[in-house]
């Protein structure tokens, strides 16, 4: 059988003798067990290079020590820089303290132009073919109100907005009570202290339970190796965010974790692009943030509130 490893995070480098150079002196029992138990798979991996093996044996992100995180990030930076042919940075900035992100979307302003969809694709290195869109813009009849079952995601008129329609972009709602996190059998997805639900692409097994569990269609699967033209790759990456994904793993919106966790925090790409200013973002714990003003002063609703997922993504009507 020809074993083509279904993996995208592989550098075809010659097999380095001796594996990891900076391995700790003594292996823990647990590690030992791991290495032994994975022997069969090692045979499967015969001929794989050091980084490939390292990626295979990598622990879950939350279990990594700070030193190990550094090593993993360095490995990824080297690997992606070589693949893309330009330097990339892969960060792992932790959550800022005293921050809980919230998002507001003004349904009375959105014109359904889909600028946000493609800004998101570019910022977050989503696969172009097969196509992955983290944001889906639904058009709805004004006379029906917010009725998802009568919505259309594939509308394509000459001009928007259309007279009798309104538009509702949907992406990850960053639930406080996320059903997707509950569904994951290997804890490959979790909620960060700043409220962002993230995925460890190196730990996900691709069972897609989370996709079935998500009420908002926010999770997307890499049905094959994602394809992003090299010159369009955003080299500013976060481990839990927009770094290139591998085949066979799930991905989702992270509120542009690589932007919002910077010092002072940039706005997510969709907020920056929106030509009508319908998208609002900020810290729910800061009572002067835009999002706090919206929650105080505006008519706000959350999508599928009856499911008690408690989204931190708020739809509102400014007028």
């Amino acid at each position: 059988m020809s074993h083509e490893r279904p993996s995208a995070d592989v550098v075809k480098a010659p097999c380095g003798g001796g594996g990891r150079g900076n391995e700790p002196a003594g292996l823990s029992r647990r590690d030992m067990l791991k290495y032994t138990a994975a022997c069969a798979v090692s045979a499967f991996l015969a001929g794989c290079s050091g980084p490939e093996r390292e990626a295979f044996f990598q622990k879950r992100f939350k279990e990594l020590s700070p030193d190990e995180v550094k090593r993993v990030l360095a490995r990824l930076e080297k690997q992606h820089s070589e693949e893309i042919g330009k330097p990339v940075t892969v960060g792992a900035a932790p959550a800022l303290e005293g921050v809980l992100y919230g998002y507001g979307l003004d349904l009375s302003r959105c014109v359904g132009c889909r600028r946000c969809v493609y800004a998101c694709v570019g910022e977050n290195n989503q696969s172009r073919d097969p196509q992955i869109h983290w944001i889906k813009v639904l058009s709805m009849q004004k006379e029906d109100g917010v009725d998802i079952m009568k919505s259309d995601a594939y509308y394509n008129p000459e001009q928007v907005p259309e007279e009798d329609k309104f538009y509702m972009p949907v992406a990850c709602q960053q639930c406080r009570n996320p059903p997707c996190v509950k569904a994951c059998p290997v804890k490959a997805t979790w909620q960060e202290p700043d409220g962002i639900v993230v995925i460890d692409y190196n730990w996900c097994v691709g069972c897609r339970c989370c996709m079935a569990a998500c009420p908002y269609g926010a999770r997307h699967f890499n049905w094959t190796t994602p394809n992003v033209p090299k010159d369009q790759i955003n080299p500013h990456m976060h481990y839990l965010g927009n770094r290139p994904r591998q085949r066979g793993v799930v991905e989702k919106c992270t509120f542009c974790i690589q932007r919002v966790r910077e010092k002072n925090g940039r706005y997510p790409a969709c907020v920056e692009i929106c030509p009508v200013g319908a998208r609002k973002f900020g810290n729910l714990l800061d009572k002067n943030s835009e999002i706090s003003h919206i929650l105080r002063d505006k008519r706000v609703f959350i999508l599928k509130e009856e499911l008690s997922t408690e989204p931190k993504f708020f739809y509102f009507y400014a007028t």
């Binding site: 800022l96 921050v99 507001g104 919002v260 910077e262 010092k263 002072n264 925090g265 940039r266 706005y267 907020v271 920056e272 929106c274 030509p275 009508v276 200013g277 609002k280 973002f281 900020g282 810290n283 002067n288 943030s289 835009e290 003003h293 919206i294 002063d297 505006k298 400014a318």
Partner: peptide, 27 residues
Amino acid sequence: RDWKVGVHGKRTGEWDGRKEYLLCVNC
């Protein structure tokens, strides 16, 4: 009123730092 608190109109820049406002007439 909404514009002054960042609810009406577009904001760019940093959510926790230097924000860029647009005048009404920029849009």
